[in-house]
Design a protein around this nucleic acid. Sequence first.
DNA 1: TCCGAGTGATACACTTATGTCTCATTCGAG
DNA 2: CTCGAATGAGACATAAGTGTATCACTCGGA
Lengths: 175, 175
Amino acid sequence: MRQAILDAAIELLARNRGASLSEIAARAGVGRASLHRHFPLRSDLVAAVVRQCMDETEAATAAATRDAGSARETLWRMLEAVIPLGDRYHFLAGVVSNEAELRARHEAEMEWLARLIDDLKSEGVLAANVPRTWAAAHIDAQIWIAWTEVAAGHLAPAHAADLAFRTLLEGLGRR
Amino acid sequence: MRQAILDAAIELLARNRGASLSEIAARAGVGRASLHRHFPLRSDLVAAVVRQCMDETEAATAAATRDAGSARETLWRMLEAVIPLGDRYHFLAGVVSNEAELRARHEAEMEWLARLIDDLKSEGVLAANVPRTWAAAHIDAQIWIAWTEVAAGHLAPAHAADLAFRTLLEGLGRR
DNA sequence: TCCGAGTGATACACTTATGTCTCATTCGAG
DNA sequence: CTCGAATGAGACATAAGTGTATCACTCGGA
């Protein structure tokens, strides 16, 4: 029940941040009243969605970090793990929560990414003169584009992370 | 008057597609009634904004094409011309107009981009095995990221097109 | 079987955005 | 200066979303 609502909310809110509670309840197959029983205010639902998205992406990045040796390998595993969560990820990027806990977790994720970028530079994987924000924005974009292309059927899921990884490092030019 | 409203609308709608007419009128420094005189319905205003954005981006891409020799040069000029229009461009990407004329113009722009990508492959600038939709999505993303970084003050406007161009072709890896 | 928690449907009040209308004011052309 | 068009302010009706409350129903456990 609660999970069905959260799933429907992610699906609709990722596409349209202004999706109405009626739409979400209908998609979840529950009455709007029941939705309000689990999430009294709209903001409660949004916060719960953000929290779940963070849980999932943090679990994915944690797994990618855990037993990876190099930063290069970490990046690859992170892309592989996070691209299938593209809608979650995109939703997070667009929502700025006003709850302190969620803000803090988001900050932590951003710092993790910044550290990864620094490590990639140290390893000589990323060019040293690439600005950190530029690199971060492109990693974000790769995840979103890869997920979109998979969802549109233009790209086989198995190749998505590989293509994103290579494009990120080598670009689209003829090598 | 009319132009002030359009400018305010682009500014606010690019950031928030659901911006209210009151906000837009206030930002333009006009009464809401006057806004309705020029654009009876919200959809009229949105269509006018889309039309102006298309005028500007088409003018930019047309100028980039006009006296450019190679497709490589066309791409470079297009990036240089369109990145400063980042907010316009981003707005267009998010709005799907239901007016036939605007849809047709958008289609034409997409086809122009597809042709450019094919030409870039013919010239050996883009790798031949890069899917067309993948390349198009990345060109879009480069424009948006570059504009965002410039707007955030992380990147000098003069370097934006150059950095975007090089990242697109060569990626972020150490070459 | 009976009871109670959970659910769906529905009604209600409230808020916000939209579109229409009126009226007094202003500003520029003649 | 005078007239008229355009403007700003505001009232009004309507629609949609949100949050609350109520009521009847269902289903599972005691």
